[in-house]
């Protein structure tokens, strides 16, 4: 049973970059769409700006897959008094994000092992 659950997790990997970034953005706190975009932009040195089409397309699919959930609708005190939808990560989403992080870490360590020694002076 446990084995199957793990297999199920691996079936979602690798995650599209936007999905992974969104999971990371909502991992520590609830955020609304614009805040997610801002967080991603800040973490990627402004290299990744999600547009509303991509962002909400991804959010829709992540909601359907159960990676994230909508918590409530409230105004953002830092912006204006308009109500915004906030999203947070689910347990399942967190497991997925962790698996993807492990996968990427493994990938990076493999790359370091095979690429870096050659570039070091003998």
């Amino acid at each position: 049973m446990e084995k199957r659950a793990v297999d199920d997790l691996y079936g979602y990997l690798p995650l599209p970059p936007a999905v992974f970034q969104i999971l990371v953005a909502v991992a520590d706190r609830e955020r609304h769409g614009y805040a997610i975009m801002q967080d991603i932009a800040a973490r990627t040195d402004n290299r990744l700006h999600l547009s509303p089409g991509t962002l909400y397309g991804a959010i829709k699919r992540m909601l359907e897959q159960g990676f994230i959930e909508e918590c409530d609708e409230r105004p953002d005190p830092e912006m204006d008094d308009e109500r915004r939808r906030y999203y947070r990560i689910t347990d399942f989403g967190r497991r997925i994000a962790n698996s993807e992080t492990e996968r990427l870490a493994k990938l990076v360590s493999q790359a370091l092992a095979s690429l870096l020694p050659r570039t070091r002076p003998a």
């Binding site: 769409g33 509303p52 089409g53 909400y56 829709k60 915004r84 939808r85």
Partner: peptide, 17 residues
């Protein structure tokens, strides 16, 4: 259905940016 669900959010997002 996509517009009904996310249209408002997307419009706010666009305005914010």
């Amino acid at each position: 259905h996509h517009r009904d669900e996310y249209g408002g959010e997307m419009a706010r997002f666009f305005r914010d940016r």
